[in-house]
């Protein structure tokens, strides 16, 4: 368990939030023109990184807004929190 600093509400317990998985996966602009491989890549394939991962979170039991997070998945340390649509502030 860890504390998450919601950009809209401030510090809250992680149990108030819902993890939304890997961030910055763009929905294909022309879905009808994708091959099966490209669909599989978009739908199923994940980086599943051990280390700094960029991911989406939703403050489900709070403001219910989405935001992005950079977190070290090897020790659950949060490195940065930034808004949806923004580029990650760290590498």
């Amino acid at each position: 368990m860890f504390i998450i600093n919601c950009p809209f509400c401030g510090e809250r317990e992680q149990s108030e939030f819902k993890a939304g998985g890997e961030a910055h996966i763009e929905r294909p602009k022309q879905p009808t023109e994708l091959s099966d491989d490209e669909w599989a890549e978009y739908l199923f394939m994940r980086k599943n990184i051990k280390g700094i991962q960029f991911e989406r979170w939703n403050h489900m039991h709070g403001c219910r807004k989405w935001f992005n997070m950079a977190r070290d998945t090897s020790n659950d340390e949060i490195k940065a929190i930034y808004k949806i649509g923004e580029k990650p502030p760290i590498k």
Binding site: M1, A19, S74
Partner: peptide
């Protein structure tokens, strides 16, 4: 399971 990705071999208390 917890719903977030983690390799920490810990989980949440809730």
């Amino acid at each position: 399971t917890d719903d977030y990705i983690s390799y920490s071999q810990k989980g949440s208390h809730d």
